[in-house]
Simulated assay, not measured.
Amino acid sequence: MAPEHAARRSRVIMVEPALTQLTKLTASETHRLDRAIVAISVNPELGTAVPDTLLRDYTDEVDGVRIIYFVTALHTITIVAYIEA
Rank of each mutant, 00 (worst) to 15 (best):
M1E: 09
A2V: 10
P3W: 08
P3G: 08
E4W: 09
E4I: 13
H5A: 12
A7Y: 08
A7H: 11
R8Y: 09
R9Y: 10
R11A: 12
R11V: 12
V12L: 07
V12D: 04
V12W: 00
I13Q: 11
M14H: 01
M14D: 00
M14S: 02
E16K: 15
P17L: 01
A18K: 03
A18N: 09
A18T: 11
L19R: 14
L19Q: 14
T20N: 10
T20M: 10
T20D: 14
Q21W: 06
Q21Y: 09
Q21G: 04
L22P: 04
L22V: 06
L22K: 03
T23H: 12
L25H: 07
L25A: 02
T26F: 05
T26Q: 05
A27N: 14
A27Q: 15
A27F: 12
A27M: 12
E29W: 01
T30R: 13
T30M: 09
H31F: 06
H31S: 07
H31E: 08
H31T: 10
R32S: 10
L33P: 02
L33N: 00
R35W: 07
R35A: 08
A36M: 03
A36T: 01
I37K: 01
I37H: 02
I37R: 03
I37W: 02
V38C: 11
V38L: 13
V38S: 11
A39E: 09
A39V: 00
A39R: 08
A39G: 04
I40A: 00
I40R: 02
V42S: 12
V42A: 13
P44F: 01
E45S: 15
E45M: 13
L46A: 05
L46H: 02
T48Y: 08
T48E: 15
T48P: 06
A49I: 14
A49C: 11
A49D: 15
V50W: 05
V50A: 07
V50F: 05
V50N: 03
V50H: 05
P51I: 06
P51Y: 02
D52G: 07
D52S: 11
T53Y: 06
T53L: 06
T53V: 05
L54T: 12
L55I: 04
L55S: 05
L55E: 07
L55N: 07
R56N: 03
R56Q: 01
Y58D: 03
T59G: 00
T59D: 03
D60C: 06
E61D: 13
V62Q: 11
V62P: 06
V62S: 12
D63G: 10
D63Y: 13
V65G: 00
V65L: 00
I68P: 02
Y69V: 00
Y69T: 00
F70D: 10
V71Y: 04
V71R: 04
T72W: 02
T72C: 08
A73T: 15
A73K: 15
L74A: 15
L74T: 15
L74F: 14
L74C: 13
H75F: 15
T76S: 15
I77A: 10
I77H: 12
I79M: 06
V80D: 03
A81Q: 13
A81C: 13
Y82M: 09
I83M: 04
I83L: 02
E84L: 11
E84I: 13
E84W: 14
A85C: 12
